[in-house]
Design a protein around this nucleic acid. Structure first.
Lengths: 199, 199
DNA sequence: CATCTAATTAGATGTTTATTAAATTAGATG
DNA sequence: CATCTAATTTAATAAACATCTAATTAGATG
């Protein structure tokens, strides 16, 4: 249900420590220890808050050796706010709502079938509709608005599947991403789709 | 401090009952009893939530006999969200920050001196700078974007001071409001000023 | 002024949540 | 494999919060 997501989003931002974390991350990625230091709290507290921010997709994480670097998920920060206003004003009609729920259930089942428990892609579905769901689910984990080099995209895709070349091609073919001389950017229109892929 | 306001705003929206209240109010004003009925909670609970929504200026209230009607404060709902994003990204430089704080202190002192405890205007300051602060403080209590008839504006101003004609004229003169054939609307540019007048 | 109505306050209860210290895990490196 | 580092989990504590019932207040009206 839409309402729960909105409430979760606002809960995530309803704490001064978490807002301060986001402000710090706006200057660039930081790891847990540094955040703990700058905010004068213990690392355990950072873990706690990071979990809440991750649940609502406000931050991304990247591991390098033992260290986990947190960064902002610009997309979610900038666009979830609108969703609140939309929910309040264009109050959802019953019909649309159940339609939407069904749509989401289908997506979740495809995701369950084609991804392993730890998030790897088992295989790329051949059926177009399912393939799009899978691609969207992967691309949703990129940072909105950020420019990626081809190497960065390849490395990113490799987290999900070895055949990065095929998937990268599919991204472009189905316009999940745009490419301009070696630089890749996510399609801005993916924003609403992204919202729905929130668990 | 800016941070506290942002956190309060998100706290206000971090509860399903309050979001549902706002959704109901989007269709028009409602009183406490009706809200309690529609949301299956007691009137006491509505009072509790209304207080939180009022503190962050998300709703307005209007009394008619024994009944208090709640309505949305469109302005705050639509614009506070942006403030969050701004706070995170354009992280405030120390200098600006203290400047701002001083500015706010001045305003608060003028408001303390020219308004009674229950919010009536003692007198209109003659000094321009102070007069503008007073006018802004009154106009901030209007609903953003709503069209008011001259009678409505007069009645509104009478809540603060008997000489509604003078104050109405001042509103127009200093462009806190615009008038087009008997219809009054708040100047949209007042939005940021409004934000600052939040207690 | 007695009564009615709508709203608020006060007090109680159960839940959620922010934080910490201490124990544990996950991964890297000598 | 022993050790180091960064992160997480667990358990405990205290504060904040949503909700209710019951008592009270504020206005209106006969």
């Amino acid at each position: 249900m839409q309402l729960d997501k909105i409430v979760s989003y606002h809960k995530a931002l309803a704490d001064p420590t978490r807002i301060k974390m986001l402000i710090l991350l706006a200057d660039g990625e930081l790891n847990g220890q540094v955040l703990a230091e700058k905010l004068s709290v213990t690392p355990a507290t950072i873990t706690h808050h990071a979990a809440k921010l991750r649940e609502t997709r406000l931050i991304n994480e990247r591991r390098d050796k033992n260290t986990i670097y947190f960064s902002l998920n610009d997309y979610f920060i900038k666009n979830n706010a609108n969703a609140t206003v939309q929910l309040i004003y264009r109050s959802v009609k019953e019909g649309e709502n159940t339609m939407d729920d069904k749509h989401i259930r289908v997506k979740q089942s495809v995701i369950r079938n084609f991804f392993t428990a730890d998030g790897k892609l088992k295989s790329l579905p051949s059926q177009l509709k399912k393939k799009l769901i899978v691609l969207e689910n992967i691309v949703a984990k990129l940072e909105y608005g950020r420019k990626y080099s081809e190497k960065e995209i390849n490395d990113f895709i490799k987290h999900f599947h070895d055949d990065f070349a095929t998937i990268r091609r599919e991204f472009i073919m189905h316009q999940f991403m745009f490419r301009e001389n070696e630089i890749y950017v996510m399609n801005p229109q993916e924003m609403w789709a992204r919202w729905e892929t929130l668990s």
